[in-house]
Design a protein around this nucleic acid. Structure first.
Length: 419
DNA sequence: TCTGGGGTCCTAGGACCC
DNA sequence: TCTGGGGTCCTAGGACCC
């Protein structure tokens, strides 16, 4: 048996832990620059606010229902996530799946005791972190996901839903919309509905050859999992990333080369930091800049891939190459709305083949980088860097930011004694 | 006026090789 | 009229996840 522990409305719940005034009212967390909705409380869902919806489209609703707005506070969410995962690990081998979810490996556990254990875990996380979670337990990961969704829908389940008897599972699947199944997105949902497949149960009754043909081996795995055959493996040790990306939309259009350069340099530095954290090097650097694609008039979507002779993790080298690439794709007269950097062709740092006429002192670079990473880790991000300064106009706007309640000593809540 | 920011895997088709 | 066959690698595009 396998379990999934999924935090309910995770970002919102994190905000609520430190700001109880948000309880019971519609609240949303916004994307960078407070542009669109990326998380919603149940109350916000109930009044029809949608994931990814731009704020300007729902101004009236926000006002009418007095919706609380929160700018994204990712350091807080990550810290709360770490706390949740630490608690889960006390009960069963845990595989972190995303910031708000983890799988629990219940193989070898007594199935008769799992319901009670699941409830204990749910209660413990709630008490120790303040986060409400939904735990689903079933023979496969896909079924466990369904169980955890039931948990959210039916509060009387009290934070844990165990699904293991074949007839119970069948009963659930017959009512479960196929589009809500993990692994079936909007495209496949449409295709399946058109073929008369509306519930998860309908899907399990389709011939495997048909599923394979229409949805490839990925769809077939989902089909098998729904029929109780585990076949989605998730690695215990998070594999190294194959691509590392940093990109942002700008608060307003940017047409000045130096400003773009500053942005691209800082994205590259962030990417390189992530790369060094996983002890890898990259062999490829990709830089892109977009104009606003919503506008009718002429657009520009430019990108350049640079292949490296010798793979590297040096911010110095990468920022220099990114600047060259940017110089090649930049065109004056355009207002750019978004830019980004992607590192690819990633491999472990050990075993780098240095080319014969390598002009770079790699030892020196790597000593410099590790001093830099160290300082940034201890003194906070952005303490030292090689980026070309900062521009006020590029800074992300966060009008409704909560404080760093758990990670900054100055922001820790103070308890006042009543006299 | 205004639309997020990360990732994964799979497949088909073209280039190229022998 | 007739136009090999098998393999690899790369890329773009399409689907999905949170």
């Amino acid at each position: 048996m396998v379990g999934i522990c999924d935090a309910n409305n995770f970002y919102i719940s994190c905000e609520r832990v430190f700001n109880p005034a948000l309880n019971g009212r519609p609240a949303v967390v916004l994307s960078n620059n407070d542009r669109c909705i990326i998380a919603r409380s149940n109350e916000a869902k109930a009044i029809g606010l949608k994931m990814g919806q731009p704020i300007y489209q729902v101004r009236d609703t926000l006002r009418t229902y007095n919706v609380a707005l929160c700018s994204p506070n990712f350091p807080l969410y990550q810290d709360m996530s770490d706390r949740m995962q630490a608690i889960l690990k006390r009960f069963a081998p845990t595989i972190v799946y995303s910031i708000d979810e983890a799988f629990l490996d219940f193989r070898g556990f007594d199935p008769g005791k799992l319901d009670a254990l699941g409830h204990t875990i749910s209660r413990t996380v709630r008490h120790s972190t303040g986060l409400p979670v939904s735990i689903g337990i079933a023979p496969t990961k896909t079924l466990a996901k369904i169980a955890s969704k039931l948990c959210k829908k039916y509060p009387k389940l009290n934070g844990c839903c165990l699904m293991h008897k074949a007839e119970d599972i069948e009963k659930v699947l017959k009512k479960f919309p196929v589009g809500d199944v993990w692994g079936i997105g909007p495209r496949y949902e449409k295709m399946l509905n058109a073929a008369g497949v509306n519930t998860a149960y309908d899907f399990t009754q389709m011939p495997p050859q048909w599923v394979r043909k229409k949805m490839s081996v990925v769809g077939l795995r989902t089909w098998k999992e729904l029929r109780g055959e585990p076949c989605i493996e998730i690695d215990e040790i998070a594999p190294d990333k194959q691509h590392i990306c940093t990109s942002r939309s700008f608060p307003s259009e940017v047409s000045d080369f130096d400003m773009l350069h500053t942005a691209v340099a800082s994205f590259t530095a962030t990417c390189a930091e992530k790369l060094r954290r996983q002890k890898s090097v990259c062999g490829e650097l990709y830089v892109f800049i977009y104009t606003d694609w919503h506008k009718e008039q002429s657009q520009s979507f430019e990108r350049r891939i640079v292949k490296l002779v010798t793979p590297t993790d040096s911010t110095l080298e990468l920022t220099a190459m990114a600047a060259d690439a940017l110089r090649q794709i930049y065109r004056s007269g355009f207002g750019y709305k978004k830019a980004g950097v992607i590192l690819g062709d990633i491999s472990p740092r050990t075993g780098v083949q240095v080319s014969l006429f390598d002009p770079i002192d790699r030892g020196k670079h790597s000593r410099l980088m590790s001093v830099m990473d160290d300082l940034n880790r201890k003194q906070g991000r952005g303490t030292v860097g090689v980026a070309a300064g900062r521009h006020k106009l590029l800074e992300t706007v966060h009008e409704h930011l909560s404080r760093q309640f758990t990670t900054d000593i100055n922001d820790i809540l103070k308890v006042k004694a009543k006299d």
